[in-house]
């Protein structure tokens, strides 16, 4: 067998992380992108900066701050009761945060494009309210952009190491995603296993890239 049972656990774990992180992107990042594209308040500017930070901020530092925010000594732990850090939700949080800007920013760009503005004005003149304009005009227009953003976020989450290490702890059999397991394999001198896992990651990422290119060419 190419992969031993020790490698299957990270595979299944990574699949779970990607699944939950993508759901969060869909239900949190997409609405944030829509809201930021039409809001011009001080608060929305602050949120805009916040969601853009993972693009430029070192992942290990972002992970550290998230560890402080969600850690055992944080006031938020009263709510979460040690269910985030060093467990699956911590890894999902890391994957989610890493992918946020890759979903939000393209949506903002698509919904603020001159074509989107013209069509929103056309719909407004035809008597449609803002909610109808969003669901009947802007979201269908941005559909491919949203899908492309989600693909990019999945790709980014797949290779996430810094934040995952901080929030997940890289605990063998519990929070070691594929990316972390490659690091572990190399650290233990198991280069063959590291190579197989790396090839798996590369194949999956290439698939995502091809899907992204196909979407982009039809946008």
């Amino acid at each position: 067998m190419i992969l031993d049972s020790a490698s299957l656990i990270p595979l299944v774990l990574t699949a779970k992380v990607l699944f939950y992180a993508t759901l969060l992107q869909l239900f949190i990042s997409v609405p944030i992108g829509c809201w930021l594209s039409c809001s011009r308040t001080v608060f929305s500017s602050f949120v805009d900066i916040l969601v853009s930070l993972p693009l430029v901020f070192p992942p290990i530092a972002t992970g550290f701050f998230l560890l402080i925010i969600f850690g055992r000594k944080s006031p938020l732990n009263v709510v979460f009761n040690d269910t985030i850090i060093f467990q699956l939700p911590g890894l999902v949080l890391a994957a989610f945060v890493a992918g946020i800007p890759l979903v939000v920013k393209p949506i903002q760009a698509a919904m603020n494009s001159s074509e989107a503005n013209k069509l929103a004005e056309l719909a407004a003149v035809l008597g449609k309210n803002k909610l109808t304009i969003l669901f009947a005009v802007l979201l269908p227009l941005a559909k491919k952009t949203i899908l492309a953003g989600l693909l990019l976020a999945v790709g980014r989450s797949l290779g996430e190491v810094g934040m995952s290490m901080m929030l997940g702890g890289n605990i063998i059999g519990r929070t070691n995603t594929i990316s972390l397991e490659i690091y572990n394999a190399v650290f233990e001198g198991e280069f063959k296993r590291a190579a197989i896992l790396s090839l798996l990651l590369a194949a999956f990422s290439s698939g995502l890239f091809i899907a992204f290119k196909k979407l982009s060419s039809t946008t």
Binding site: E115, K118, E121, L122, V125, G127, K128
Partner: peptide, 20 residues
């Protein structure tokens, strides 16, 4: 009053249509 309340028919210069 908002454009929605004005009951206007308008043809824009570049005659945009909903592409989807």
């Amino acid at each position: 009053t908002s454009p929605q309340q004005r009951k206007i028919g308008m043809v824009f210069q570049e005659y945009p249509l909903f592409p989807h």
